[in-house]
Design a binder for these strands. Structure first.
Length: 430
RNA sequence: GUGGCCAUGGUGAAGCGGUUAACACAUACGACUGUGACUCGUACAUACGAGGGUUCAAAUCCCUCUGGCCACCCCA
């Protein structure tokens, strides 16, 4: 194969795009119901934006960014995540002046130079949502409820919600120090990676899969026990709001985030069905980010969902949009009548297909079958002469005689109870 | 960045040193000259990821490269 796509960059083929539409439309529906508006920002930003927001010492910034110098000698980067760009736009256009409370969502490709594997690609897609301007834990709960609602909307109950609090710049340093001294006391029991983490990101050690480390960290101090009063109250309030709305969740005090800007509430929707890629969606509060990027001191909270991972969870369900009618024709003269009928039906919003190449009736019928058309009709000399035709329901072969007109077929469609004339983005379970 | 496994047609795959690269599905056309799904027939890889090497002979053995998958790291 001479020319192929870039490693880790995937084509979404026609057979798959229906599933993507299903996910994207469900997200738009749920988010807009919750008062969010879409914001579209560039896929590239100045490199500095990501260094300042995500954190210079994170893996993303250190080794995973697609950064390069453009012809004007500017260092630019393909966005590795969405929040930074959205917040840059929020500040740049002074959206906070209009209304400090903004509810925004976005979707699109993100880029990270990682080794591809199941559920992880170099170009991947995220759908994310952000709320700015509200300190109240009520919005934390609303965001979590919306996330939960989204997964319910697409018919998945598998990913489950885990929450944690990371504290704030007030209380986190003390926790970090307590954890470090705990870990330092047992460096001997830790794996090589965790010894390295001790200096880079000690919290990660709590997340390690090596049995020895799991054992060694059993009694490790928990973030939740080191929260300052403000953070502790906040977290309790989030939990009580979730309880109030009966939103299922569990607390995972060992949950770690990869981005530096998170404060207080953090969360993930996790699954065990995707191999080692357990996080399907993740996010948290970022109260310092906007100010850190040069904006006013306005808090924020948001999340991003991995579209590929959701698509994987949806599995083999079929999301095709199927024709309502396939028109087969007998001879060249009849194709005029067929083409005109198709045109009329399309204008009326009926999904119609017809033979384009004057093939044999047999092969036209085979095509009608292959396209999974609801109905088929054969237009030959008799039909043109009589102005009426036999519409055959493909599922059971039952034939209905009706006028060869738009109204005629619409009547047939209406009769076929339970067969929706509009299949667009309706999942057809197999 | 590290490790393991793998690489034959549109797809799933047989083949493991020797003349025409099984089989199945998919696809196209036909048997049935106005009706699909079943059946049957015909067609469909000078080609076995790429490049070298060993051999009289390689899809089959060796090396390099490239790609894929999975895992680590990290993350959506």
């Amino acid at each position: 194969m001479a020319l192929t796509a870039i490693k880790g960059f995937n084509d979404i083929l026609p057979g798959e795009s229906g599933r993507w539409h299903y996910i994207e439309e469900a997200a738009r529906r749920v988010f807009e119901l919750n008062g969010f508006s879409e914001i579209r920002v560039p896929v590239m930003e100045k490199t500095e934006l990501f260094c300042r927001s995500i954190g210079d010492a994170t893996d993303i910034v250190e080794k995973e960014m697609y950064s390069f110098t453009d012809k004007g000698d500017n260092s630019i980067t393909l966005r590795p995540e969405g929040t930074a760009g959205v917040m840059r736009a929020y500040i740049e256009h002074k959206l906070h002046a209009l209304d400090p409370v903004a509810k925004l969502y976005y979707l699109g490709p993100m880029f990270r130079y990682e080794r591809p594997q199941k559920g992880r690609y170099r170009q991947f897609h995220q759908i994310g949502a952000e709320i700015t301007g509200v300190h109240d834990p009520l919005v934390d709960a609303q965001v979590l409820n919306m996330l939960t609602a989204f997964f319910r909307e697409i018919g998945l109950d598998e990913p489950s919600l885990q929450i944690n609090s990371l504290g704030c710049p007030e209380c986190r340093p003390a926790y970090r120090a307590a954890l470090c001294s705990f870990l330092e006391a047992r460096t001997g029991d830790l794996c090589e990676d965790c010894r390295r983490r001790l200096s880079t990101n000690p919290l990660r050690a709590l997340d390690c899969k090596v049995p020895g480390c799991i054992q060694a960290t059993v009694g490790a101090p928990s973030v939740l026990e080191h929260l300052c009063t403000g953070c502790d109250d906040h977290f309790s309030a989030v939990r009580s709001y979730l309880d109030l709305t009966e939103t299922p969740y569990s607390i995972n005090s060992r949950m770690v985030r990869g981005l530096d800007y998170y404060t207080r509430t953090t969360f993930e929707m996790v699954t065990t069905l995707l191999g080692s890629q357990s996080a399907v969606a993740a996010g948290g509060r970022y109260d310092g980010l906007i100010q850190q990027l040069g904006g006013p001191a306005i808090p924020g909270i948001g999340f991003a969902m991995g579209v590929e991972r959701i698509a994987l969870l949806l599995g083999q369900r079929e999301f095709a949009s199927l024709p309502d009618l396939f028109i087969a024709t007998m001879g060249a003269g009849e194709r005029n009548a067929a083409f005109k009928l198709m045109h009329g039906l399309l204008k009326a919003g009926v999904r119609v297909e017809m033979d384009y190449e004057g093939k044999s009736l047999k092969s036209q019928m085979r095509r009608a079958d292959k396209l999974k058309a609801c109905f088929s009709v054969v237009i030959g000399g008799n039909e043109v002469a009589s102005g009426s035709a036999a519409f055959k329901r493909m599922s059971d072969g039952i034939v209905t005689e009706a006028p060869l007109t738009v109204a005629g077929f619409e009547a047939v469609l209406a009769q076929g109870r339970g067969i929706s004339p509009h299949h667009l983005s309706t999942p057809v379970s197999e």
